[in-house]
Amino acid sequence: MDNLQSATGIRVPIANGEAIVSARQQAREVANSIGMSTNEATMIATAVSELARNIIDYAGEGELIIDVATNGAQRGVLVIVCDQGPGIPNLDDAMLQGFSTSGGLGLGLPGVRRIMDEFDIQTSRNEGTTVMVTKWKR
């Protein structure tokens, strides 16, 4: 993930609730542009909503990148969210269903992992968190 600066795709700065709405609308448009079903597009939009909210709740601000992913003939939607926040102190706990430190539902990351096909997270203390998820078109 060292090449984030050069990543292509739509960049959405995330710092408030309007940005969450904008990010999920743009994710839906990218999903539609490669002919994904309404179901798939809605799952991606929901995942984007959760990930963008994590940025606001835990890091205050960050960035979300949405792009078309390709793997041979396969196409999908790639979403990268990154922040320079405090990082996630105990990633294993955060990935457990029901765990949350913000008084939320604690469904964010495990739920997002369940609705996307690929899920990768890197976090380091006081340096921030990057989550990279992909959903492939069926």
Partner: peptide, 14 residues
């Protein structure tokens, strides 16, 4: 609540 919204919610665990 639309069908695809319900589908995504359940998938997410909501």
């Amino acid at each position: 609540i639309q069908p695809e919204v319900a589908f995504s919610m359940v998938q997410l665990g909501i």
